[in-house]
Design a binder for these strands. Structure first.
Lengths: 204, 204
DNA sequence: GTCTATACTGAGATAGAC
DNA sequence: GTCTATCTCAGTATAGAC
């Protein structure tokens, strides 16, 4: 059947999102998809490439939206620096749209970073929009030294990853798990203030 | 031999720190430690419990230092709110001391959260100092609503985890990898500003 | 081109002899 | 306390049916 590939993709997406990449075996995937184990390797080559295919199919639209939003924010600002919050929203809000229709996928995106999943794969899917994010942040914060900005982007991605998974790092610290877009707005506010903080010089 | 257990612990600590928990097999550990595979299960019970033992041995002092620092910051502030940055430093700087003597361990602490390693284990080792951190932050920011504070702690832990691992999420974003305490000071400044941002109300 | 059956290697875990 | 043997289950590879 031609939809063997689809069944594998759909099932893998769901299971990876629900339980994480490492925790899901190919045998679980093929059992639920009702296909043969070898079909996975025929269509995808390996478990890792299956993950890659799952992500490619789903993150593409998010990346496209991010690219478009960032470009729009820069265009609207004209020759003025755009606001940091606007830049952050442009990058983060596309995940909220996805979260409505497919909460599992957002978790998976978070887990990608969170599980230390194959840095090459993470890189592949975030590189394009990540580069544009950095460029936009540089416009918003022209006086922030490069090193400082890079570290702050690093902090941001860490915070973002854990926020997307929705899994409280320490269950005791769990706040409301509900409204996803409120969560993102909180994140934007928090990160915006952080990015705007004066730079920590190298010599104090 | 009585030091079979020690050899296993030492080797596991090094390998987990260098390559992560999931990526290291017990067979690698026992090969380098030159002990039998069954010794691991005899002394620790399982791979997971071995990780637990590794962490217990090493994180104990860090937690103690955190507890002491947080208490001191609160005491020094008297009946005034302490500064957010002082609270954050009290929590974060103990990792810098460890990083000097044992960089691998700090990576491992980061990876614990970052790899989504067994939430129960992460919780066990961070719960005590985490609770005191939250209490201290509440003193520093008495007007911040509880939910908002909890999410900000969540953001903070995500940023911290990725900063500790030292692994750039996207290699392109790698800044300097050197001075660990500078990195922490940058993190404190970034997070301090974020925590001090006005709350994002539930209804806007 | 697609898929199935089956086998291979290496993982964590366990029972039982010593 | 330690070690051998063995179990189950993982990801992977291949031969061959259709």
């Amino acid at each position: 059947m031609i939809d063997t590939k689809q069944k594998i993709l759909d099932t893998a997406e769901r299971l990876f999102g629900e339980h994480g990449y490492a925790a899901v075996s190919l045998r679980q995937v093929i059992a639920e998809a009702e296909v043969n184990i070898a079909a996975v390797h025929y269509h995808f080559g390996s478990k890792e490439e299956l993950l890659d295919a799952v992500l490619l199919r789903k993150i593409g639209p998010v990346t496209a939206q991010r690219m478009e939003n960032l470009q729009r924010v820069l265009a609207e600002a004209g020759d003025q620096p755009p606001s940091v919050e606007k830049v952050l929203e442009a990058f983060l809000l596309p995940t909220a749209a996805v979260a409505q229709s497919n909460p599992t996928l957002v978790k998976l995106m978070g887990r990608m970073i969170t599980e230390g999943m194959l840095p090459q794969i993470a890189e592949k899917h975030f590189r394009e929009s990540g580069l544009r994010l950095v460029a936009a942040l540089k416009s918003a914060l022209p006086h922030l030294p490069h090193d400082e900005l890079m570290w702050r982007v690093h902090f941001m991605l860490g915070a973002m990853a854990h926020t997307l998974t929705g899994v409280p790092i320490i269950s005791l610290f769990a706040a409301d798990t509900g409204d996803f877009s409120l969560r993102l707005r909180r994140l934007v506010k928090f990160l915006g203030a952080g990015f705007r903080a004066p730079a920590e010089g190298k010599e104090n």
